[in-house]
């Protein structure tokens, strides 16, 4: 058990270092909340600079896309097959409702299947209200193998 905890802790530390090295993730204030095998949870604080519609104060969909994309990539990197790298091939995002202004957005991504060259990801984003996601996404990512 202690050994599993150790692995989990090291994976999370590695993931945090990885996300911390992405300039745009840093610019948006993204943090890695949890990282388990093929699954990542990330959070992005509310920030007035990210507003898409000034009338409502709602965060721009693009910022939510950036969070989902980063979280999806992290889930791919945390897959048991440990790819050496990954890039997004396509990402479809459905916006179910507006995120409540002032609330942080949390994304959870799962890499549910991986072939030799492609990883498949599903993700959802919430703003703290359980059971009422603000957006969901599906994506395909490349799988880079180490040389």
């Amino acid at each position: 058990m202690a050994e599993d905890d150790d692995i989990a802790e090291r994976r999370l530390a590695f993931g945090r270092a990885f996300i911390g090295a992405l300039p745009h993730a840093r610019a948006l204030g993204m943090t890695l909340v949890d990282l388990t095998e093929g699954r990542a949870v990330m959070e992005m604080p509310y920030d007035a600079r990210l507003i898409g519609d000034p009338e409502t104060g709602v965060i721009h969909g693009g910022a939510v896309s950036a969070l989902m994309d980063t979280c999806g990539g992290a889930a791919v990197m945390a897959h048991a097959q440990t790819p050496a790298g990954t890039a997004t091939l396509d990402l479809r995002i459905d916006y179910m409702r507006s995120a409540t202004p002032g609330r942080a957005i949390r994304a959870e991504a799962v890499c549910y299947h991986m072939t030799r060259s492609v990883a498949f990801v599903r993700a959802t984003a919430t703003d703290g209200e359980e059971g009422r996601p603000v957006a969901s996404a599906t994506g395909a990512f490349t799988v880079e193998r180490g040389r």
């Binding site: 992405l22 300039p23 745009h24 721009h60 969909g61 896309s65 950036a66 989902m68 994309d69 990402l91």
Partner: peptide
């Protein structure tokens, strides 16, 4: 470029 930036640019 970050994939999210690209997505945001296209959506905007």
């Amino acid at each position: 470029l970050h994939g999210g930036v690209t997505a945001a640019f296209l959506e905007t």
